[in-house]
Design a protein around this nucleic acid. Structure first.
Lengths: 124, 124
DNA sequence: ATCAACAATAGAGTATAGTCTATGGTTGAT
DNA sequence: ATCAACCATAGACTATACTCTATTGTTGAT
């Protein structure tokens, strides 16, 4: 029995991989982009990184952002605007608003492509 | 004055590049995927390839399909279903219907991502 | 004690989609 | 005739986004 009502739920990279569906390799690769950062427990003699629930959420955001076609570079900006504190609130809002413009453009392109294909199908 | 009311409008690769906005290199690269095929004029002593208006249309389709995230492999299938005669009409319709499913899925992902970002913006 | 399973770091290898260089031949205006 | 601007082919190089291998160290169950 754990005496803490809500334990920190820190996990090692292997569990983070299982939680997110990403491979350990990919998570390490993403760490270089700053998508997640583990924390080292200074009390322990090992140098293992520990990850919290926010790490899971961040990686889920990365997966979603990738599936809509954002590059890792763009995702880095989104993550910084979303979770970071290097930008002011105004800057964050501008960055995110820019991404919405990109998404709207892409949605329009997809709809146009869909219409084109449907047109082609009627003409076959 | 040209005596043909609608001359074939055959062009060389340089003009095709200008018409499509793609580089000559990229068009040559795409030729390996079968996106366009020039025809050689056997009466001429050179071995230049000539391209028609369909080549322009095919490359415009490639550009559009790329912008919505299709891979060159997927685009090859679309081009074959659209212009080729290796597939039966039924097969062509199935291939194009599959692409529409992909597009619908992607449109949904984009809309979800947009909603997520908008939600994040209200919470900043 | 030891052994599989996991951890960290470094660096090599792969796939996709171009992009560029080198080489040699062709054409058209001067 | 010649010279820039074009053409074809082959192959090297680049960027992005992983993916894998090698090495070494740690942990936990037996």
């Amino acid at each position: 029995m754990n005496s803490y009502p809500h334990k920190p739920l820190a996990m090692l990279i292997n569990e983070l991989a299982k939680r997110t569906g990403l491979s350990v390799h990919t998570i390490r690769f993403y760490e270089r982009y700053g998508f997640v950062k583990g924390t080292r427990n200074q009390s322990s003699r090992n140098n293992y990184f520990h990850y919290d629930e926010e790490a899971v959420q961040r990686l889920e955001l990365v997966v979603d952002a990738k599936s809509v076609g954002f590059t890792l570079q763009e995702i880095a900006e989104i993550i910084d605007a979303w979770y970071g504190n290097v930008y002011t609130k105004t800057q964050k809002l501008r960055i995110l608003a820019d991404k919405i413009v990109v998404l709207d453009t892409r949605i329009k392109e997809l709809r146009d492509m869909k219409r084109q294909i449907q047109q082609c199908m009627t003409e076959l």
